[in-house]
Design a protein around this nucleic acid. Structure first.
Lengths: 137, 137
DNA sequence: CTGTATCCAAGTAGATACTG
DNA sequence: CAGTATCTACTTGGATACAG
């Protein structure tokens, strides 16, 4: 748990924030997911790009760099011309996949409820306000 | 604003992204954590603010609104003067706490490695190119 | 093929002031 | 007490061009 005090969950000392700041960015979770599905096989840059529709070279590049810096994925360069670069999850990255999979499971189960709640709140509460939330459970 | 079209064009929108977009924002995870620790007790606005150092009224307010809209937390107003507003996790919110706790556990275990990896990468690779990742496993 | 560099649009968060 | 309104700074992400 937290080190010293419960009320003190702020600052760069809050691990959850650190982690969420990393995996919460737009493309990170998708990159990890693709690499996790491919594991233990490596995936090349262009292949990642193809498997993540909509991502730009810049974002894929910077996302991969962050993850490499964190030690979550490993980068291997074939010294050919032109070069081929391969990525794979490290052990650390694979270990993250476990709680991430749990979150994914929750997401797939409940995202429809979440979206429905939003729609309901949007429809029937532009200025009117009930006290209860749309749907729980 | 959120004038979302329903076609959802280039993305077979993954639920995980939807969820991460919500809990990945700066203060959301902290609000959920505080409410989860207090559960099943309710927490008032000012109390939340006190327990989350650094958060502004505006951010707390908008964060809470998002979570209420999602149905993750419930809002109860005491019709007094001045009013007292109480927040608590809904069943849905509590169910999210489970995978979130798993992520928290991972974070607390591995965040030091993550940060160390970053420091190492920063030190020994400003422009020099090693092909090796700092620490895996 | 795998990146980097630049510029720009959009979203997110902070400070401050004001209200029922 | 519990918000809202506004204005601004910072950050993120996208488009494009170019390089090793």
């Amino acid at each position: 748990m937290t080190s010293s005090r419960q009320g003190d969950l702020f600052d760069p000392l809050c691990p959850t924030r650190q982690v969420l700041d990393r995996i919460g960015t737009k493309w990170t979770s998708m990159v990890i997911k693709v690499l996790a599905e491919a594991a233990p096989e490596e995936v090349r840059f262009g292949e990642l790009r193809r498997r993540i529709p909509g991502i730009s070279q810049k974002m894929l590049s910077s996302t991969l760099q962050s993850l490499v810096r964190d030690g979550l994925i490993a980068r291997r360069v074939e010294p050919t011309v032109p070069p081929r670069v391969h990525y794979r999850l490290t052990e650390l990255g694979l270990s993250l996949e476990t709680p991430l999979a749990a979150l994914r499971a929750w997401a797939e189960t409940h995202v429809s409820t979440l979206l429905r709640n939003n729609r309901l709140a949007e429809q029937l509460a532009p200025h009117t306000q009930g006290e209860e939330s749309p749907a729980r459970s």
